[in-house]
């Protein structure tokens, strides 16, 4: 198949970007979207054009490093990571728009690459259980009800790709933040820091400049890991709990 790509090109954070059009011929439907970009980059290099910079690493949908907005949708038309999107999802002759995640806290570094350091800082603000190495009791000391363990796991599968932010009309990272709060606050091990965790993480979320959640659900509709919507309600409940309890 042959396709036309319109790609956001921006040399660096300081320079204005623009959409540039490229034709890509003889695309196999079995190619992944990123492999199609690889093929284009090989050609651009040989032609002496700067290849398109895009983030990627594991290419099996788990590391969370890849992610571009394809035709206005984060990660494209399927609910998966960009690396797991294959060209069979597009029609021959398609014109495909490719843009970076857009949000104030995710500044563009180059072309399709953005800086998601804000996520790390949200985790630093409480997204952990304080347990110094070697201080743990036996793994079976605290049974965890299976339903809680399963729900915590569902939330813990977040890969921090940032699609939720890119999709949210408010530029909110609430799904990312809520996934971590839910994961840790559901487990017995997470209880001692339950309220300081949620307060710290929400405060940092706002500090980074993310917007507020309006419960529209676009985040969960594009989340490649299907992080459940209810995590946000869980975060809300715990935050209100922390306000009532007047922690710290």
């Amino acid at each position: 198949m042959n396709i036309t790509l319109r790609v956001w090109r921006q040399p660096n954070a300081e320079t204005e970007g623009r959409m540039v059009t490229y034709g890509v011929e003889n695309v196999s439907e079995h190619m992944s979207f990123l492999e199609m970009l690889d093929v284009l980059n090989e050609r651009l290099t040989l032609e002496g054009d700067d290849p398109i910079a895009f983030d990627h690493d594991c290419r099996e949908g788990i590391c969370g490093q890849c992610g571009v907005v394809i035709d206005g949708q984060p990660h494209g038309p399927l609910q998966t990571t960009t690396c797991q999107l294959h060209m069979r999802s597009f029609a021959d002759g398609a014109v495909i728009d490719v843009e970076p995640w857009r949000a104030e806290p995710f500044p563009v570094i180059k072309d399709l690459v953005v800086d998601r350091g804000a996520f790390d800082r949200i985790i630093q603000a409480g997204g952990y259980i304080s347990v110094p190495t070697g201080s743990a009791p036996d793994a079976h000391a605290t049974p965890v009800p299976k339903t809680d363990a399963d729900m915590a796991f569902d939330a813990a599968t977040c890969i921090a790709c940032g699609a939720c932010v890119a999709a949210c009309p408010n530029g909110s990272a609430m799904l990312f933040t809520a996934a971590k709060v839910t994961h840790l606050n559901l487990l017995p091990q997470g209880q001692p820091e339950r309220y300081s965790r949620v307060a710290g993480m929400v405060a940092q979320h706002d500090e980074e400049g993310f917007g507020g959640c309006t419960n529209i659900g676009e985040c969960t509709a594009v989340c490649p890991k299907g992080i459940p919507f209810e995590t946000i309600s869980f975060l809300n409940r715990d935050l209100l709990g922390s306000l009532i309890k007047g922690n710290r």
Partner: peptide, 24 residues
């Protein structure tokens, strides 16, 4: 806040999926 956070009013150049994915 949201207006700043989303990166301005002209967010994505692509005219596709302007209505979002599933929102009411």
């Amino acid at each position: 806040r949201a207006r700043v956070a989303r990166g301005g009013t002209k967010r994505y150049v692509s005219p596709k999926a302007r209505r979002g994915v599933q929102r009411s």
